[in-house]
Design a protein around this nucleic acid. Structure first.
Length: 273
DNA sequence: CCAGTATCCTGCAGGC
DNA sequence: TGCCTGCAGGATACTG
């Protein structure tokens, strides 16, 4: 579900309610997510400890603990974090609960269980199998300079490459389509066969669309909301994603939907080359 | 190394 | 109403 803008939106909301709070208790469900949750370690590592400002890396959240170490969270396709009063009923598929010393508890809810929550000891970030291979942060000012060499020599579809977290960490299926449309680049074009100035445009479009979406609090299609239940407002500003058959906002030709690398892709055959 | 496919899992919408 | 299919915002293990 969440891409960089949604995860960043979640991070900011969490920062307002988690920083300086102590974890009073941890509850861990029995079902594994992408990796087993590791109940004893998680409980031991967090109970009684104070939380710092959360960080984001790509689509990962790092809930740092005072004194070192972090809870690493990834929301996969269907994961969400919810802050609610301790007494309120918990949704189905709640796999992890951090009860805070405020009146609130933080819940990790994930029906499909493609997500991840695992304890990272201090210094383990460089070793973690998921984190260590992550590529550049797309909002890094160095992206325009770096993108040409990331695409150089590659024959795979540029959209597939944008989704590869080892190249750029945080772009997902919505914003890949959106950025390619804004840049006028066809999603199926081999990465190594895009002219220099189009690559530059693409880098700019990736940064622009992600920044716009962060500003809008992310995209709510069906069920994304921030931890307090606020939906993201970017859906109305999507130009092509989910709009097959509707007129291209630029040229009015019908927006197409096709599969690229097995993922739904939305694009304009007239504007994108 | 690279490119392409299959797979993990649940819920929902749509067609019959 | 039920049953079936396809689809979903992701990552990774595997194949050639």
């Amino acid at each position: 579900m969440p891409e960089l803008p949604e995860v960043e939106t979640i991070r900011r909301a969490l920062a307002r309610h988690l920083v300086g709070r102590r974890v009073a208790a941890v509850e861990v469900g029995p079902k594994p997510l992408r990796r087993p949750l590791g109940q004893p370690l998680l409980t031991l590592a967090l109970t009684g400890h104070t939380l710092l400002e959360p960080r984001r890396r790509g689509k990962f959240l790092l809930l740092d603990r005072a004194g070192g170490g972090s809870l690493l969270v990834h929301l996969g396709m269907s994961g969400r974090l919810q802050l609610a009063a301790c007494g309120r009923p918990r949704p189905p598929h709640t796999h992890l609960v951090l009860r805070l010393d405020s009146d609130l508890e933080l819940r990790l809810v994930d029906p499909r269980r493609f997500g991840l929550a695992s304890w990272l000891a201090a210094g383990a970030e460089a070793v973690d199998p998921s984190l260590r291979q992550l590529g550049l942060e797309p909002l890094d000012p160095g992206l325009p300079a770096a993108l040409p060499r990331l695409l150089a020599g590659r024959r795979a579809a540029v959209k597939t490459l944008l989704l590869d977290q080892r190249l750029v960490a945080g772009v997902g299926n919505i914003y890949a389509s959106e950025a390619l449309w804004r840049a006028g680049v066809r999603p199926t074009r081999p990465g190594g066969f895009i002219s220099r100035d189009r690559v530059a445009r693409l880098a700019g479009a990736v940064q622009q669309v992600l920044a716009d979406a962060v500003e809008a609090g992310g995209t709510t299609l069906r069920d994304f909301s921030d931890p307090l239940g606020e939906p993201g407002l970017f859906a109305v500003r999507l130009d092509v994603y989910g709009r097959a058959g509707e007129p291209c906002p630029s040229c009015a030709a019908p927006v197409r939907r096709s599969l690229v690398g097995g993922r739904s892709t939305f694009w304009c055959a007239r504007c994108q080359r």
